[in-house]
Design a protein around this nucleic acid. Sequence first.
RNA 1: GCCCAGAUGUUGGAAUUGGUAGACAAGCUGGCCUUAGAAGCCAGUGCCUUCGUGGCGUGAGGGUUCAAAUCCCUCUCUGGGCACCA
Length: 807
Amino acid sequence: MDTYSPIEIEAKWQSRWDELGTNLFSRDDLASAEKPYFNLMMFPYPSAEGLHVGNIYAYTGADVWGRYQRLRGHDVFQPMGFDAFGIHSENYALKVGVNPNDLIPSNISNFTRQLRRIGAMFDWNHTVDTTDPNYYRWTQWVFLKLFEAGLVEKREAPVNWCPSCKTVVANEQVIQGLCERCDSAVEQRQIEQWFLKITEYAQRLLDGIEHIDWSSRTLSAQNNWIGRSEGADIDFPIVGRDESIRVFTTRPDTICGATYMVLAPEHPLIDVLTNDEQRETVDAYVEQAKRLDLKARQYVDRPKTGTWIGAYCENPITGAQMPVWVSDYVLIEYGTGAIMAVPGHDERDFEFASTFDLPIKRVISRNGSNNAGLMTEAYVGDGVMVNSGEFDGLTVAEGKRAIVQKLETNGLATGQVRYRLHDWCISRQRYWGPPIPIIYCDDCGPVPVPESDLPVMLPHLEEFKPDDSGKSPLARDTDWCTTDCPTCGGVGTRETDVSDTFLDSAWYFMRYPCTDTDEVALDQEMVKKWLPVNSYIGGHEHAVLHLLYARFVTMAFHDHGILEFGEPFEKFRAHGILTKDGRKISKSRGNVIIPDDLIAEWGADTVRLYLMFLGPFEQGGDYQESGIRGPASFLDRLALSVAEASDDKGDEQVLQAMHRTIDKVSSDIEQLKYNTVISALMEYLNVVREGGRTCTKQELEPIIVMLAPFAPHLAEELWERLGHNSSIFESGLWPEADPELAKVETFEIGVQVNGKLRGSIFVTESTTENEALSLAQSNERVATHLDSVDVRKVIYVPGRILNIVVG
RNA sequence: GCCCAGAUGUUGGAAUUGGUAGACAAGCUGGCCUUAGAAGCCAGUGCCUUCGUGGCGUGAGGGUUCAAAUCCCUCUCUGGGCACCA
């Protein structure tokens, strides 16, 4: 009989887990769990292609964490679901000419099969499918709650329109002016849209960053995305008028170096201030700027363009007159849509001033000396104010305060904080999403659909291809659109936009523990017991999309009395990505790896172990199939060792190594350094089997427990073969290192002479410097280097190194 | 341009956070066992070398230190994010 035949063993344990409900919770189980631990991972979009090896990598790493927590004695709830709405599914459905409704179920069952095959401990009693009316009914409810909270607004706004997807896309979905889905150049359009007012939470989202245990790179991405800037709004009086131009600046200290003003092409004052001579030129410029699509406009390396509009402002500090220009390098959507240009200390202004021969003036000097020479580039660094009259000599920081203070007394300035974050546009002029639950009535205006009328069902459309009308295909189903106004009972028309997929995923984790009821979205008993999520693991690509939206919805629900907590995920870890031969894995490169064959060949345990062994989980690694033999033969040797193991007491030396291994594994697994966990287990097995010695059960049991998160099927099997008759995951078996046994008694340390390694000596913890030195001196190799020289200094770091400085 | 990661043998990677660089694997070479080997076992494997108890070596160059893959400065390259955000 084979000691280890993965296919049989894995089938055996998967069906046993199913029979015993090892990973399943009933509602009662959920309610009575003593040590609840919610282990969440990002749910997939169920594509037709199935899970690729990158998905398996991510889910295995998250499952390892969940199983580890389980071995620590927690009641680990680990659900899985499917994020099946959205443009991605819809475009695929259009391509193959099938309604997405008919496509999704088979994709989901294929995903489920794959996810079961890798042996992750998902609770298949608690799943979500965002396209199920029993789910999206509650997504619509989420919208209504945000509406009640005053966080939903319809307004006409310039939005990113993808001409290929024929829909609006969020700022977060525009990558360098291109649609993230199809890479078409995004255009600017003015359309009425539904917005969620996430900007009201900008500061809260920023403040919360201090208090959550997340991967630092994810937090830094959110930080940059929110983009807080501190500065001031300053009014520049317009010469010959009773009005002024308000600008936002983060550098009030450079105001004396402001030599002209710039308005964004869309700025309302342009029309008012342009004089007759300039009118034609300005109109032409503004027209041309409006025609530019967002991609062209955001292209940074484009030469600066613009024109003088024939007006002047007065510098409120120096009194100097400054011409007012219009240029598309100033953006209407940020700040006040107008700037004071300081070419001496801003790179963009410098470039503009150089192009149009506008004066460039130094007002900040690195060392305080007033070097009057020509500036050849903008100086943006720190320094001291010069050429600024009474303010000369102040540092940048002092100057910022002093200028604002002086202007505040005249009412010309106010301290101001601004954010780059924009409101979240959730309208999508597409078919495959939850209809936004709003009804328009000629008398009552837009009215929210009453909760009792949810869900607003998405009709089954034969023809769901979007057109260029700017309206959703739902608008073509007039039967569906026509309804009664919930307020007055008159004729109403349904909103035909559907919501962004990111609304589906902004709250899905809250639904998982509540799926036993269809009466309410959130079962408060379950919410209190299981939320917030204890650990969330997922891709870093969602740093500023999903993860920010989920925080926003949670905060809004907290403020609205629905949730008691304000942050959804206590701990978040971004996993690394897998490369193939050092290159990113992607469909376009044609190097996608579907894991099914690999698992069929090697078994799930070996594949899991191999993937986790590739590199640190948070950094990813390079997938090289030949490397799978290492983990495979490790499992073989372990199975062999168990088969041969005796009932004798373990060897003392081996048990010491065992406790050191427990120590290392326990600390590395906490840091998700799964690769070194596995290498520590391998090293220990090498010690156990050294010289072909027969090992004992006592020496092997803990290693099997520590391996269980990685290779759960084999661990169960070996546990059973060692004579245990309950599941290894049942009773919190994670071993505890005995500090006495883990302690190393004698160790070898290096001996250096003048920093160069010349030999080594064996010492104990209590070896003194003098003892170490005499040990070193009696070492032949070291002694040669001490001949006929004086010892000048001895550095002895117990347990680390002995360095003898001679000369 | 800015921000964040990173660069270590033939390859994936390790290094107690300043203390014996290359753990654990893969690959390769040789051997044992075997009808067989994706099984098991043993040995070797950074480079140079006059083979010495020698020299060199963690992207490049400089610095700090008794001691640097690790800290500091300058630069190069790779991956990712943001991008005219005033």
